[in-house]
Simulated scan of single mutants.
Amino acid sequence: MGTTLHNPVTVNNFLNYLKFEKRYAENTIVAYGEDLQQFFAYLQERFSMREPVLADIAAAYIRSWLASLKENKNSAKTINRKISTLKSFFKYHMRTGQLEQSPMTTIISPKIPKRLPVYVEQRDTDTLFRYVEFPDTWSGKTDRLILSIFYNTGMRLSELVNLKESQVNTSANTIKVLGKGNKERVIPVSAELIKEIRDYIAEKKRALESADPVYLLVNEKGRKLYTKYVYLAVNKYLSAVTTIDKKSPHVLRHTFATHLTNNGADLNAVKELLGHSSLAATQIYTHNTIEKLKDIYKKAHPKA
Rank of each mutant, 00 (worst) to 15 (best):
G2E: 10
L15S: 03
L18I: 08
F20I: 14
I29Y: 01
A31L: 03
G33R: 13
E34P: 02
A41N: 14
E45G: 04
S48K: 12
D56N: 15
A59W: 04
S64F: 09
K70W: 08
E71A: 13
E71S: 11
K82V: 13
K82I: 07
K87H: 08
S88G: 15
F89K: 03
Q98H: 12
L99H: 13
T106E: 15
T106K: 15
I108W: 03
S109P: 07
S109C: 05
P113D: 15
K114E: 06
E121R: 12
Q122E: 14
R123I: 13
E133K: 07
S139C: 06
R144D: 05
L147N: 09
L157Y: 02
V161T: 01
N162K: 07
E165A: 13
N169C: 01
S171I: 00
K176C: 02
V177R: 02
G179H: 07
V186F: 00
S190E: 04
S190L: 12
I201T: 14
L208M: 12
V214K: 09
Y215R: 08
Y215L: 03
V218N: 10
L225K: 05
L225D: 04
Y229T: 14
L232Y: 03
S239P: 01
S239M: 04
S239K: 11
V241L: 09
P249V: 09
H254I: 01
F256A: 02
F256Q: 03
A257V: 00
A257Y: 00
L267S: 05
L274P: 07
G275W: 15
L279W: 02
L279M: 09
N288I: 14
T289E: 04
D295Q: 15
K298A: 13
K303W: 08
A304V: 14
